[in-house]
């Protein structure tokens, strides 16, 4: 039992990510409201962004700014003293992508609302089944 707890605690960042992904997926599958689904999608994407960020951390490491680094005059540089900056840079791009996805999703949701006067999936499906499109 203690070993299990140790494994759990040692990898708590992954468990957090998995939990967030579960919440996001649950919202996308179980919720009928389009905006709630979009929120779920954003939580899901954020989980993966946090996953990348957590992999960059090291114990006792500082930010990756090397003082007097130019020309190599300073003392020897150990990579273990600095956090890995690359995942942060990658995730800046991923954040931009997720913001763009969010924008497109909300724009589509607005169009859906114009067409059906509703954001509830079951109501929209009922309207489609009944074949009554009250377009504005």
């Amino acid at each position: 039992m203690e070993e299990l707890a140790a494994v759990f605690l040692a990898r708590y960042n992954y468990w957090g990510v998995i939990l967030l992904m579960g919440i996001g997926l649950y919202a996308m599958i179980a919720k009928t409201n389009m905006v709630k689904k979009i929120i779920g999608m954003n939580i899901f994407q954020t989980a993966i962004i946090l996953f990348y960020i957590s992999t960059a951390a090291k114990y006792g490491a500082s930010i990756p700014i090397i003082a007097n680094g130019h020309g190599g005059h300073g003392p020897g540089i150990r990579a273990a003293d600095y956090m890995n900056p690359l995942p942060h840079v990658l995730m800046l791009t991923a954040i931009v992508v997720s913001v763009a996805t969010l924008g497109v999703a909300l724009a589509l949701a607005v169009r859906v609302y114009w067409n059906y006067d509703s954001l509830e999936e079951d109501e929209i499906l009922n309207q489609i089944k009944a074949g009554q499109l009250n377009r504005k």
Binding site: M28, M41, F44, T101, A105, L108, V112, N115, L133, R135
Partner: peptide
């Protein structure tokens, strides 16, 4: 027109996952 936006939104959800 019509159902395009709804269909595209459900594509967006699955595509993003």
């Amino acid at each position: 027109s019509g159902r395009a936006a709804v269909s595209s939104l459900s594509y967006l959800f699955i595509g993003t996952i």
